[in-house]
Amino acid sequence: MSAYPELDQLGLKELIARWHQPAIDGEAYAASYYQEIVDLIRQQGEAGVKFLLAEVPTANLQKLAAILCLLPPVSNRKLINQIWTNFLKDDRPEIVASAIDGLRHQHIWQVRDQVFALSKHPAPCVRGSVLRYMSQYDPKIASVMLVEALDDPDYTVRENALDELDQLGAVEAIPLIRSLLTDSHPDVQKAAETALENLAQLKKGAWQRKQLNASANLA
């Protein structure tokens, strides 16, 4: 069962019909609904991918963001690179953020300089997607950015930075992460709490391995 079980058994034709209808849970949840439909349509194979690419020029904000984020990866990397990179200059933050996530899913790293240049973008959703992209592309460069982002004025950016530091296993950031346990936003507090638990486990595991190796060398 998926998050939208009512869509699970639908074929391409029915999914396309749903794509053209209003979101079933209402406009407030349209982003997640169209993202799910994009994922199901791409699973239908080449015909589904072709349909979604054809929708790009005319899709509204929610639908275009869903395509940009969840259509990749596809076999035609060159096409994704060309189309998606153009959307990095879009004036709608949701579109820029989704294009960055799509480029990350497609593992297109040659546009890293253009993505990095968006790290001070006024929209928090863009700054968050830049952190996710850079974290996956180059953990060393990203770790500096992630530590800086812990002081970002927007909570979603701080939250992204914490989740990425956790993912990178950045045990050296533990003291900085600890200070966010009392952040003003509960989601940041939760991300900090989880990161600290996970990083402490990693640190303990590394210490135990070191002790075992030392014992083995003595024996």
């Binding site: 949840y29 982003a31 997640s32 993202q35 963001a65 968050g128 939250e159």
Partner: peptide
């Protein structure tokens, strides 16, 4: 929510 995908 963080990934701009609020569920009902």
């Amino acid at each position: 929510n963080k990934l701009n995908s609020k569920l009902s």
